[in-house]
């Protein structure tokens, strides 16, 4: 008897459930009522904060812009290079967490680049470079070592292309490792090769392929 009661109860709930699911499906297809849109906002907020929790993968360009503007840094390409070299050194040292931190820092200095003094053509090229580079820097700020290095490769191309436009006060060396991912380049302040793609595994693999300045 008791069993019967429980079964009936479950059955009733199951029926209610199916009905409600169908109803709520219809609801979302229709234009939302006030109450519904309130719920939507709420759940969207919830998801947003949930996303922020487990990945600071930073699709928050506006936030970054505000922060860096408040910090009153100059939007100098030299600053980007400095952060890039620090990141490179962290990869050379096989230091995953340092590279994460520096990737985040680089993303900020990239966003902050002041392009106002360049020609229109240069501006649009720089903006494209920055947009791409920021994404790689952000990925580096949240990835394991192997993935950081994958992104560092394209980031290096972006930064090299940036230097072609912005120039730099220092002499840089474009170095090249033929082994990593069918050949990969990076920039360095010193002529001596320290490989960011292999770190201690193959520290000196590579050669200087070009001197800049």
């Amino acid at each position: 008897m008791k069993n019967l009661k429980v079964t009936t109860g479950i059955l009733a709930i199951a029926i209610a459930l199916v009905t409600l699911t169908v109803m709520s499906c219809k609801d979302t297809k229709k234009e939302h009522s006030n109450e519904d849109s309130l719920h939507t906002e709420m759940s969207a907020d919830e998801n947003h904060s949930a996303m922020n929790h487990d990945n600071s993968n930073g699709h928050h360009d506006n936030e970054n812009k505000e922060m860096t503007m408040n910090a009153d840094q100059d939007g100098n390409s030299e600053l980007i290079l400095k952060d890039y070299f620090n990141l490179k050194n962290a990869l050379v040292a096989d230091d995953n967490s340092k590279a994460k931190e520096l990737g985040g820092k680089l993303a900020k200095s990239l966003v902050n680049l002041d392009v106002s003094k360049y020609t229109d053509a240069q501006k649009s090229e720089l903006n494209e470079i920055i947009e791409d580079a920021v994404e790689h820097a952000e990925h580096i700020s949240e990835s394991p070592m192997a993935h950081q290095r994958e992104h560092f490769k394209i980031l290096s191309k972006d930064v090299t292309d940036m230097v072609t436009i912005t120039g730099t006060a220092n002499t840089l060396y474009e170095q090249f490792c033929p082994m990593y991912d069918k050949g990969s380049a990076w920039l360095s302040m010193s002529e001596e090769v320290r490989n960011p793609y292999y770190g201690s595994k193959m520290l000196k693999c590579g050669k200087v392929q070009k001197e800049i300045n």
Binding site: V6, G9, I10, I13, A16, L17, L20, T21, S24, D27, T28, H32, D36, H39, T40, M42, S43, A44
Partner: peptide
């Protein structure tokens, strides 16, 4: 146990009312 199951059931039904944005 019965009560817990019931509460869970009701909660499950309840959250069906909260719509998500479909992609």
């Amino acid at each position: 146990v019965k009560n817990i199951v019931l509460v869970l059931m009701v909660a499950f039904v309840g959250i069906q009312f909260i719509p998500t944005k479909r992609n």
